[in-house]
Design a protein around this nucleic acid. Structure first.
Lengths: 111, 111
DNA sequence: TGATTATATATAAGATTCTTATGTATATTT
DNA sequence: AAATATACATAAGAATCTTATATATAATCA
C-alpha cells in the first residue's frame, strides 16, 4: 500500500474519470475497480468515498439511482451534463499534476 | 498554477530530493528552484515550507547552519545521515505514487 | 527620493481531505 | 456456525496544506 497522504485530492478526478468511462457505477464497485487498476496499490476507504459521492451529487455533478439486487440496495451514480464538464477539468488538472511531478522526479538536464 | 491540494504530501520528498542533489540549500532558494524546475507550475508557500524545515530538523532528518550574507541571515539546510535514508524512502514512495497515477490515467488495456 | 519588488525567515488560524472507527444489513464461502 | 464479501453510511480526529500577517534588508524603478 502506497503512502496515503500523497493521494489527497486525487479521488475526485479518478472517480469522475471512472464514471465517464463506465457510464454508471456504485460505490463498492468503484473501490474494487480502483484496486484492480492499481494492482492493489490504492484502496479507497468508504469514509472518503461515500461523503464525496454525496457531495458531488448535492453539487449536481453526479446523479444517483437506487437499484434492488435481491434484498440489497445498490446506489448507481453517473455524471450529469455538468459532471461531464467537471470531469474534463478535473482529469486535466490531474494529468497536469502528473506531468509536473515528472519534471521534479526526472528534471530535464539544462544545457 | 496547478490545483494545490494535489501536491499535498509531495513537499517533503521533493525537498529531500533537492537537498540530496544540491548538498545544501536555504528556504528561499528551495522555493525558487521548485518554481524553475516546474516551469512556474508549483510555488511553494512559506507557510508550508518553513514549518516543514523546522520539523525535519527537529526529527534529525536535516541539519541547519546560519550564514551571514551582508546584513541578512540565511539558514542553510542539508541532509543528515538519517536524512539520506529518509530521502531514499520518501522519493521511492513518490515515484511509486507517480507510477500508480499513470495506471489510473492510462490504464493498460485488458486483453 | 520614494515606492515597489525581491530576498529572507517566521508563525498562527483556518480549510480541506483524508483515515480510522463504528454501525447496519444481506450474501456467500469455508 | 463462523468468517468473509458485498453494500451503504457517518462521526471524530489527523495531517498537510493555504492564507494572512509580521519583520527586515537589498535592489530596482519611476
Amino acid at each position: 500500500m502506497n503512502k496515503k497522504v500523497l493521494y489527497k485530492g486525487c479521488l475526485e478526478p479518478i472517480l469522475l474519470k471512472l464514471l465517464h468511462e463506465n457510464g454508471r457505477m456504485y460505490g463498492y464497485e468503484i473501490t474494487r475497480k480502483v484496486k484492480e487498476l492499481t494492482v492493489g496499490e490504492l484502496n479507497i476507504t468508504e469514509g472518503a468515498l461515500y461523503p464525496l459521492l454525496h457531495r458531488l451529487e448535492a453539487d449536481g455533478v453526479l446523479e444517483a439511482e437506487m437499484e434492488n439486487i435481491g434484498n440489497r440496495v445498490r446506489k448507481y451514480y453517473s455524471l450529469t451534463q455538468n459532471g461531464r464538464k467537471e470531469k474534463v477539468k478535473a482529469v486535466s488538472e490531474l494529468e497536469n499534476f502528473a506531468k509536473t511531478l515528472q519534471l521534479l522526479l526526472n528534471p530535464k538536464p539544462s544545457f
